[in-house]
């Protein structure tokens, strides 16, 4: 089964709930190695997405994704604003005119989005950033899309990979962002950006599973 527009809109709404619920937790993770604003910023950003969503939810998927990207870009701030903003916008540019996504379309969306993160942030694997989650997740999704035609199968395959990748950020020493100034003291903490990215995959899994 492909993913339809209603599921996309539900995903965004649930993500807003998740970021509201996890606001304190994400901010605490950020306080340990960053500047203690990630939860506040994601909550504010998705709050704005919810304000904008009614004006575009009857448009095509590309327009919805672009609107999400532009809204996050202009309301989140910090490093996560341009990174997530670029992620959704790149997907939106690719999927202009679509009203539903087959597994291949979905994987291309994620691939374009991760490409956007790379372009904007220039992370390398092991820098302790959201890219440490997205790189293996994208690989897992591509592999699964090779054998299956359902978006839910692709997301199912990615979820355990994402869980592992998230835990794998804990022993890493940060080399990007404000956490990098801690040097070895950044070891032992889970990356906040990888955590907010993990919620995207986990929440989508819940939405698709109904």
């Amino acid at each position: 089964m492909s993913m339809n527009k209603a599921q996309l809109v539900t995903w965004l709404g649930k993500l807003n709930d998740v970021y509201a619920e996890k606001k304190e937790y994400l901010t605490e993770l950020d306080a340990a190695i960053g500047d203690a604003d990630h939860g506040i910023n994601m909550n504010r950003g998705f709050g704005k997405v919810m304000e904008k969503l009614p004006t575009v939810e009857d448009k095509d998927i590309g327009t919805i994704l672009k609107t999400v990207g532009m809204t996050l870009m202009s309301s989140v701030g910090g490093a996560s604003g341009p990174l997530y903003g670029t992620f959704w916008m790149k997907g939106g540019m690719l999927l202009a005119g679509k009203d539903e996504l087959a597994a291949d379309d979905f994987v291309q969306f994620i691939e374009a989005g991760v490409g956007g993160i790379l372009q904007r942030g220039r992370p390398e694997l092991g820098d302790k950033t959201m890219y440490d989650l997205w790189a293996p997740v994208l690989e897992a999704m591509k592999d699964e899309a090779g054998n299956a035609s359902e978006v839910i199968a692709v997301v199912d395959a990615a979820l355990p990979v994402a869980e592992k990748a998230l835990a794998d950020t804990i022993p890493l020493q940060a080399k990007k962002g404000r956490a990098s100034y801690l040097g070895e003291r950044s070891i032992g903490h889970q990356d906040p950006g990888a955590t907010s990215s993990y919620y995207m995959i986990e929440t989508l899994r819940d939405v698709l599973a109904g």
Partner: peptide
Amino acid sequence: PGEVFTSPTPDQ
């Protein structure tokens, strides 16, 4: 100006 200790956004 961004929020307190948070960078401004590109639209600004």
